[in-house]
Structures are given as structure tokens and as C-alpha cells.
Write a protein that binds this DNA or RNA. Structure first.
Lengths: 202, 202
DNA sequence: GCCGATTGTGCAGTCACTGCAAAATTGCAG
DNA sequence: CTGCAATTTTGCAGTGACTGCACAATCGGC
């Protein structure tokens, strides 16, 4: 399931147009936030720049924040799939480190978009609540995937949820540390954080 | 600084009235949410039940969510103070376990309020984003306190922020596990989670 | 009782977000 | 190509969160 996330052609005109519109709204939102800051942007402006009506905006995103953050259900599925596929010698926490770091790194495809997204999201403190809210979705998706990987019934065991939550928290803490002008670069800080977690905080 | 949080009397009439109004708004919000669910409650209703004007509501809380969650700056200071005070033989993570568990437990004073709060907050999934947003404030306060306790400059070291973030994430994961009908009671799950963290997730 | 400062309130306005029904577009069968 | 059904877009009207502002009420100290 989920081959590429972008070249993925279930292509009727309809599906393609929907993808384009969604993307156009996302890009318009990022543009405008970059120009004027999140709170100064209105949903009408975003819709206008994307070339659709104000009402249509809300057919694609449930809120202004969501349009800026722009995480799709497909992306969630992709992360979950990555976690389910077992690489030999890789622990769950190691896989989580890889996947979460990958979410931040500029991917091979869509390089500029990822980079821009990251810069804008990190630069807008007013989006912080929405971002951690978005993490809930990621956490749920990854928890379900880890449960499948471990072969336990959904919601039965505490451990998978703890593992995922701690991993996400570690990454988030590194981001926050960076936003506050802390030392070190993000990559190596994430490495350090996961090393610390693996060995125990006691 | 901060003796009791409730009996604390900087008592002029003014200060007392402000506390009363704040509390009245908070209680009214909890009442109404319990009766009709969060999204069906309006800020006007809350203000009306608390006996103040609609405009005054926003002099006390920046949003509807905040009125329900109701964490005060004083509470944050109190938690921070608890973390700063060193008990012999207690590690930072141990102190965090104690403090965070204490936030959920019905306190000696204000027992019913705490219990109600907890029940309502846990029962309203639509408040989840706001709750994790609120956690940011707690995380920042606790991180600053831990930095002082360890004697490092604010924002310089990565470690304190990681420790706090992971501790909060662990508690949050236990709550979520409970909301999803997971096994075990909250108390013992939190114990298990912190034991797991202390020994390492690797 | 009076004055300066803080707090409460009404008003007008902006904007996020929603339901609904009509219009436009697309996919498909004949 | 053409009409039909399903999907999507759009306009409209409305609700409610939230804000700035000016003014009234209240409080604390003299």
C-alpha cells in the first residue's frame, strides 16, 4: 500500500484535481504565512491565492492551522507502514528514530517544500499548540502500527503507546531546544536524545 | 513565594474578588461542559452562570478552552517550586513522577474540584488538542525549574528539556491509554511507565 | 469624601467555521 | 455526442469566538 505518495496515480481527472487543489491551498498558506505571519493571514486570502472559493477551503481543511501544517492521511499511512516493516537488528525505538528524523529531513522528492515547511513551522510560535495537536494524530497512527508489528491487540498493552509517545516527545524537545537558540544542530541532538532514552533516564 | 495557592492572602478586596470571579468562571465552565458537552457551551453562557458580562470572560481567560482547563500561573509556579526543592535520594525523574502524578491525584484541599476536573477533561476528546497545548506551558515551567535545580544556564543544555518532555509524554500516554479503555489503573500504569523509562527503552 | 488606579461592561467589528441548496464539473453508459 | 448520476464547487446566511475602545463602576489610600 502507498507506493510513492506523489506519483501515486489513481488518476482520474477528479482525483488529480483534488490533489492539485489541496496542494495549491497548502502552498498558498505557506506563502502567505511567510509573508505576513500566521495570525495576519485569513482563510479567504489563502483560498483566493489558490484560486478557489472561500467555502471550498473548508472542504479540504478543517481549520486554518491544518492548511499550514498540511499533514495528509497518506503521509500518516506511509509512516505507519515504515514502522511496520521490520528491518533486521533494528529495535522499535531505533525505527522510530529513523522515521521521525526522516519527517524533518528534506526528502529526496519535494525538497524545497519540505525545507520551507520546516522553516515556517519552526519560526511561528503561535502554531505550537496546533503542531502538538497534530502530533496526536501521528502518535495514534504510529502506536497502531507498532501494535501490529508487535502482534498485540490494539489498546491492550501500555508499552507501545509509551514507546511512541516518548520518541515523539524527544524529537519535539530537540526542536524546542533549537527554537530557544540552544546548542548543537538538530540532527546530532536527536541522536543524543535517543541515545539517552535508550540507556535510561533514571 | 506561594504558600498554599488557596489560602494565600494578599488580601485586599480587589485580589479576593478577582480570585472568586476566576474560580466562578472555571466552575461554571466545568458545570456546563458536564451538562452539554464542550462544543455545545458558549462563552456567553459561562459568563452568565458566573454572573459577569460576556466581555469580562475574556479578561480572565484567553479562550473557551482555557476556562475549562483552568491552569493558573500560580499552579505552574507551585509545580516549579516543588521540582526545585531537592529531596535527598530523589532523582530529577523521580521528582517529576511525583509532581505529575500529584497533578492528577485529588489533592487534600479542593478534592471535589480536582476530581471533577479530571473526569471532565478525560471525558472530552475534543479538548485533547487544547490539553497538549497547555502541556507546553507546564513543560516550559518545569524545564526552567530543573535547569535551576541543576545549576545550568536556561536553554543551554539539552538534557533538562528532554527529561521533562519525556516525563510529561509518559503521563500523557498513560492517560490516553486509559481513555482508550486500556488495561490497568492510572496510578500503577504511571509507575510502570516511569520504571520503564528509568531503565531504558533500547 | 476625594482622587488615581484598576476592573467591569456595552458596542461594534473581524474572522473562523458550518449547513444548506443551487450550480458547475466529471465519469460513464447508451 | 449526449444525457444522466455522482461528485465537487460555490454562494449565502448564520453562529460564535475573540478584540479594541470608550465609558461606567469599584477599590485603595489619603
Amino acid at each position: 500500500m502507498s507506493t510513492d505518495l506523489l506519483t501515486d496515480e489513481t488518476c482520474g481527472l477528479r482525483e488529480r484535481k483534488k490533489r492539485e487543489t489541496r496542494r495549491a491551498l497548502n502552498l498558498a498558506a505557506l506563502d502567505l504565512v511567510e509573508e505576513k505571519g500566521f495570525s495576519a493571514v485569513t482563510t479567504e486570502e489563502i483560498a483566493a491565492r489558490a484560486g478557489v472559493s472561500a467555502r471550498t477551503f473548508f472542504n479540504y481543511f478543517p481549520s486554518k492551522e491544518a492548511a499550514v501544517i498540511g499533514t495528509t492521511g497518506e503521509e500518516l499511512e506511509s509512516y505507519a507502514a515504515q514502522l511496520e516493516e521490520v528491518r533486521d537488528g533494528e529495535s522499535p525505538i531505533g525505527a522510530l528514530r529513523r522515521i521521525l528524523a526522516g519527517m524533518l529531513a528534506p526528502a529526496s522528492i519535494d525538497r524545497e517544500l519540505r525545507t520551507r515547511r520546516r522553516r515556517i513551522l519552526l519560526g511561528e510560535p503561535s502554531l505550537a499548540p496546533a503542531l502538538v495537536g497534530n502530533n496526536i494524530r501521528i502518535e495514534n497512527a504510529l502506536t497502531a502500527a507498532l501494535e501490529r508489528r508487535l502482534g498485540v491487540a490494539p489498546g491492550s498493552a501500555l508499552e507501545p503507546r509509551i514507546t511512541v509517545a516518548v520518541a515523539i516527545a524527544a524529537v519535539r524537545a530537540c526542536i524546542e531546544h533549537q527554537q530557544n537558540g540552544g546548542s548543537g544542530d538538530l540532527e546530532s541532538n536527536i541522536d543524543a536524545a535517543f541515545a539517552r532514552i535508550a540507556v535510561g533516564l533514571g
